Computed example of a mutant assay.
Amino acid sequence: MMDHAHDLGAVRGATERLLDAAGELDNASVAKASRLPGWTRGHVLAHLSRNADALGNVLRGLPMYASSETRDADIADGASRSAAEQLTDLRESAGRFLAAAAEPADWSRTVTLRNGVTDSAARVPFRRWVELELHHVDLDVGYELEDLPAEFVTREIAFLTERFLGDQEVPATTLTDRDGRTWSTGGGPPGALVTVQGSAVELLGWLCGRRDGSSLTVAGGPLPALPPL
């Protein structure tokens, strides 16, 4: 069962870490490439700000984005702003999201996200936490997957393996970390089973597309190719 209050606390902590990191950037640093292909750090920061507003919209029963084109245009337009403008937007949009989350609401209700995806309102804070943690890593400012909170790592592994579960394009796969925890994902073809072993961080890195999986031990076939997130 999702504990939205707990996750909102995690969002606050991750936001403060991100704001501290963004506060160290100058205009030249913001304009440098991030770890996401084709995106500068400015693109990542603009995306995080607009994502905060978008998830606030979701909590209020509004469309997440006006359209995919509007989403992309807002990120592109915001990418070239100064470091000070990025920091202000990041802080203020984060505050707006937390304000939306503080409004009285039924957290068991179903909400609609981007592309018609539905989920429980109680999972929205976790989704924001995911954005903050992984995109902090994408900024390439010294925050690495190894710096992620241990709770976040295991929960995001569970979230992503559930997301790919039943996908016929992904072989049936069992993941095991060094503490013996296991997760299952994929869905086809019948009779095939790939096993993937490694540290929790490396498993997460592969699942979320931030590592190539070369450090993982794979048996039963090649390391599966995963759909883009």
Results as ranks from 00 to 15, higher is better:
25 L>C: 10
25 L>M: 13
25 L>F: 07
25 L>V: 10
26 D>C: 09
26 D>Y: 10
26 D>V: 06
27 N>Y: 06
27 N>M: 05
27 N>F: 04
27 N>D: 15
27 N>K: 04
28 A>Y: 06
28 A>T: 13
29 S>C: 10
29 S>H: 10
30 V>M: 03
30 V>F: 02
30 V>W: 03
31 A>G: 12
31 A>K: 05
31 A>Q: 08
32 K>E: 15
32 K>Y: 08
32 K>C: 14
33 A>R: 13
33 A>W: 05
35 R>P: 11
36 L>S: 11
37 P>S: 12
37 P>C: 07
38 G>P: 09
38 G>L: 05
38 G>D: 03
38 G>A: 10
38 G>W: 07
38 G>H: 08
39 W>S: 11
39 W>E: 03
39 W>V: 04
39 W>L: 05
40 T>I: 02
41 R>M: 02
41 R>D: 00
41 R>L: 00
41 R>S: 02
42 G>M: 04
42 G>I: 07
43 H>E: 06
44 V>C: 10
44 V>A: 09
44 V>H: 15
45 L>S: 07
45 L>F: 06
46 A>D: 13
47 H>R: 08
48 L>K: 02
48 L>S: 05
49 S>V: 09
50 R>W: 12
51 N>V: 09
51 N>A: 13
51 N>C: 09
51 N>S: 14
52 A>K: 02
52 A>P: 08
53 D>R: 10
53 D>H: 08
55 L>A: 03
55 L>T: 06
56 G>T: 10
56 G>S: 12
58 V>D: 01
58 V>C: 01
59 L>Y: 03
59 L>A: 09
59 L>V: 08
60 R>C: 10
61 G>Y: 06
61 G>K: 06
61 G>M: 05
61 G>D: 13
62 L>A: 12
62 L>S: 10
63 P>Q: 01
64 M>L: 05
64 M>D: 08
64 M>P: 13
65 Y>W: 05
66 A>S: 12
67 S>R: 05
67 S>E: 02
68 S>R: 07
68 S>I: 00
68 S>E: 11
68 S>G: 14
68 S>M: 03
69 E>R: 07
70 T>K: 06
73 A>W: 05
74 D>V: 13
74 D>R: 14
75 I>K: 15
75 I>N: 15
76 A>H: 12
77 D>F: 06
77 D>V: 03
77 D>S: 14
77 D>L: 04
78 G>R: 03
78 G>A: 09
78 G>F: 01
79 A>H: 11
79 A>S: 14
79 A>V: 04
80 S>H: 11
80 S>M: 05
80 S>D: 15
80 S>W: 02
81 R>Q: 14
81 R>L: 09
82 S>T: 15
83 A>G: 14
83 A>I: 04
83 A>F: 04
83 A>Y: 02
83 A>T: 06
84 A>C: 12
85 E>K: 01
86 Q>K: 04
87 L>S: 14
87 L>N: 13
88 T>Q: 12
88 T>H: 11
